[in-house]
Amino acid sequence: MTLLSVKNLRVNLRTDAGRLRAVRGVDISVERGQTLCLVGESGCGKSMAALAMLGLLPPSAEWSADEMKLDGVSLLNAGQSTLSNIRGNRVSMIFQEPMTALNPTFTIRDQLCGVYRRHKGGNRAQARERAIYLLERVGISNARNRLDQYPHELSGGLRQRVLIAMALMCEPELIICDEPTTALDVTTQAQILVLLAELREELGMGMIFITHDLGVVSRIGDHINVMYAGRVVESGTRDAVLGCASHPYTQGLLRSVPRPGVNGLQSRLGTIPGTVPSFYQADPLCPFRGRCERKLPICASQAPPVRSGAGHHSALCHNTEISSIAGNSA
């Protein structure tokens, strides 16, 4: 059974300038033991979609969906207490800013054990054992002594490891990582990615990985949803989307990745001309039409169709043929 299945998710933010349509009908589906990457530029709604799934949206936000099921059980009408029992227990989340994501006035032990005892009960010793085990598992040496340290005594990489350990305290079935490596230096970034991939494998979790970094996607993703202006414009297996990108936006994104040896010193890095459309108007037409180099007259009058190919590979575009054969069916 699909671990998490979300259909037609919409998130609006009430702002002074009107209703900002941050997420406009997104489908998300994650299987156990697999990683779904949500890829897109800043502001495309990828984080908002993730926060909506956990009931963590800011008070100014409102959301709706046709379906939201965790392990077959609908969460659409779940109250805050139900969601609160799920968060950190069955579904965990890791955030972008390890430097500020830990409470500065409590020790690592307080914060890790607090989560465990909240969901699993148990006594202090059990929670402590679990915390030490996980700190060691996420690669923190001298875990016993680290327990009594405060967040400010740890480096950014260590703090992110602590946060990963915290997210794993209750053995979640699904872990949502919102750009967990963006704030870290490249070496640490690589280590954390390897660690996350290993842990997912070991614990058989599903994972949603939110990033704008296509390099990270190619290393960790099984499935990819490419998001643009609050919609999924292309989705499919990693090999299909990265190997046979069909949507003009995905192709543009791929052209803008520097490749040592391919882009010579003289050649310029690809860019996508134009800017993101306004988020305030409801617009059923293709959100990318203003910047698209392959646009047709029909793009300005009719909503784009979903073109599907092998292995769940699909793109939201009038002017594309899915030629993918690389996609392994999920």
Binding site: L54, L56, S84, N85, I86, R87, G88, N89, S92, M93, F95, E97, T100, A101, L102, N103, P104, G114, V115, R118, H119, L163, M166, A167, M169
Partner: peptide, 12 residues
């Protein structure tokens, strides 16, 4: 951010 973390971990 740390309150968001606490909420994401289901803290009451």
């Amino acid at each position: 951010d740390y309150i968001r973390t606490a909420r994401a971990m289901g803290v009451r």
